[in-house]
Design a protein around this nucleic acid. Structure first.
Lengths: 340, 340
DNA sequence: AAGTTTTTGAGGTACGCACCTCAAAATGAG
DNA sequence: CTCATTTTGAGGTGCGTACCTCAAAAACTT
């Protein structure tokens, strides 16, 4: 039989009230007593029954997903998974809300974050580029007693328990390897496209990409990253210029998540010759492009997994538990038309 | 506020005892009353609080993983994940045991299965090739009130709620596409290796492989499947003969999960020329081969995911729930050295 | 030593449901 | 109609924990 709090109280030689104080980190317990309880926990192998705990706590968990106000297709996919998860986890007393922030105005974004109260949220998963304002806001949030994790794009701290998303260096390296292998002995230049190189994600992907390409495939030359800044027209112009300036373009690596426009433009511009194209994130349009052979491979991070993992991580933090690392690791997925 | 059984009783105009009888499928309730309760459930949107239910039931879940007695490296990986999961889910009142069966003796295997009682197990996840004996044993097991799912290799029924594992046709197709793309414009023959073509998995993988290769890449010729029957010596002999008979071998597709021996042999036999090698299942040795460039790609199904998914599926069946399909789908993963 | 503050204990209620008993009511059979 | 049978209701207990109150005990302070 699993030991209960009652058994623990007996084993530690204290009352249930004290056990409660220690387990839930309430104040008014001498360190000596805390140690005694912890010793007893270890000795009898006590493990809190989470099922009973959540029932008694009677308040489930309320988590918020902070996402940019304006977004691309990938964001839509994420949002879809959040609400799907919300539906499915109601029976387990977990509520999930979406909070929008203005990504282009860090000041306003920080203000929105500062308004999130511990009365309304037990934890926050945030998807936003790192800025000093956001970082501070998150810091204050934790001081207010709200747990936080960053999703998709990391917020500085390399703590694995605080970030849910892929290793972007590895993702870039994977793209690089695939690009080179798909090209075989074809030589030429490779276009690299990003929304902005301000974002850590793109920097890391580029780093990984070059790290594979430069030393191993001297016959391939990756051109400096072109930035679209999220404007569709600009994407067209930038691509057109690049194709005009280089007549040996054999590959296109789209690092940002808004790949649709770039794929279409490249399709038109490349003429008759083959162009290996690799993009990130599975969305309706990239998926379609993959099926149509307009895209050769897709590097993906499972958005459903990210949402679930973020919630599990937040919950574990609330309950002062560790997560099962192998379950929370987000894989760098390679998608072809065959394994969609 | 979520409606409780009390609210439901009021809404249905019956007592709590009757609600209990209906919800838990006890006898002694007129159909008319059952209908009335179900109507009320739909009307007020009642959803049983699983947290409270498991607490009250006070018996968690006991699941069994039925696996072959003798196995390869992949089985070891699976077992590792089962015990890891068992550790992690104790706090949620889920117990996981491992049951070994003699895969080569279907009769004995079926006998072992028939001894599993509903008193000891709420559900069974089975990993075994399909045979008539096993199929019958599973059928009787369900009649005894034990829920079942097949993992890794399917047991006939194409019911998605009864199988946890990859789509092997898609896996084979993915391997085929990668093989062809990595080979580029190189032409020649491709060796295909399996433990046995009796198993459904291998058949399906081969089917998918050919389905991509034959119509799209006429310069590549996939040879008839070679069978090793699990014997290491035989693997060597078979490969040697194949290399002797064909001097244009450019690719090797290892469909079985015991890839280690085949990779090593092929390495020695191929001489100086390049040989694209693709295998299945991530294990310590295939992983090492990938890092060493002795393997070009690995097709994988996440064993941790399979274990967790099997348990979630069994639990959902016990509670008469549906699972979240997107979460339970096992992906055909492509692994390169970069995204391990 | 007396007073003040901190720490601890005893006891209770609640969460939502499972599972039990026994009597009362409704239904069906003859 | 009566009697047997089936169906339903009322009520209770317990699961393991959270959270609350109030008094008692222990530890410090001066």
């Amino acid at each position: 039989m699993r030991p209960t709090t009652k058994d623990l109280a007996k084993a530690a030689g204290v009352s249930l009230a004290t056990i409660d104080r220690v387990l839930n980190g309430r104040s008014g317990v001498r360190q000596k007593t805390i140690d005694a309880v912890n010793e007893a926990i270890a000795r009898i192998g006590f493990e809190r029954n989470q099922v009973a705990a959540t029932l008694a706590r009677q308040k489930g968990y309320r988590f918020g997903f902070v996402v940019p106000r304006s977004g691309d297709e990938f964001l839509d996919v994420i949002l879809k998974h959040i609400s799907e998860f919300d539906q499915a986890s109601r029976a387990e007393m977990i509520q999930t809300k979406i909070v929008r922030i203005d990504e282009h105005d860090p000041h306003r974004a920080a203000k929105t974050l500062s308004r999130l109260s511990a009365d309304d949220y037990d934890g926050i998963a945030i998807m936003a580029p790192e800025t000093p304002q956001i970082r501070d806001a998150l810091h204050r949030m934790r001081e207010r007693g709200i747990e936080t994790v960053a999703i998709i794009s990391n917020q500085q701290e390399e703590d694995s328990q605080s970030f849910v998303g892929i290793d972007n260096v590895a993702a870039g390296a994977t793209a690089g390897r695939l690009m080179a292998r798909f090209l075989g002995n074809v030589s030429g230049s490779i276009l690299v496209l990003a929304e902005t190189m301000q974002a850590r994600d793109s920097l890391e992907r580029r780093l990984g990409f070059d790290r594979v390409l430069t030393p191993n495939y001297p016959h391939l030359h990756a051109l400096p990253t072109l930035e679209t800044h999220g404007y569709q027209e600009r994407t067209g112009v930038v691509l057109k210029n690049a194709f005009a300036a280089h007549d040996d373009i054999v590959g296109l690596y789209i690092m940002g998540s808004e790949a649709r426009v770039a794929i279409d433009f490249a399709q038109q511009l490349r003429g008759g010759s083959k162009l290996i194209t690799i993009a990130h994130e599975r969305t309706p349009s990239t998926e379609q492009a993959l099926r149509d052979n307009r895209l050769d491979a897709l590097i993906n991070q499972d958005p459903g997994h990210i949402v679930r993992s973020a919630v599990r991580t937040l919950r574990a933090k609330c309950e002062n538990r560790e997560t099962l690392a192998s379950q929370e690791r987000i894989r760098v997925e390679i998608l072809l038309a065959e394994n969609l």
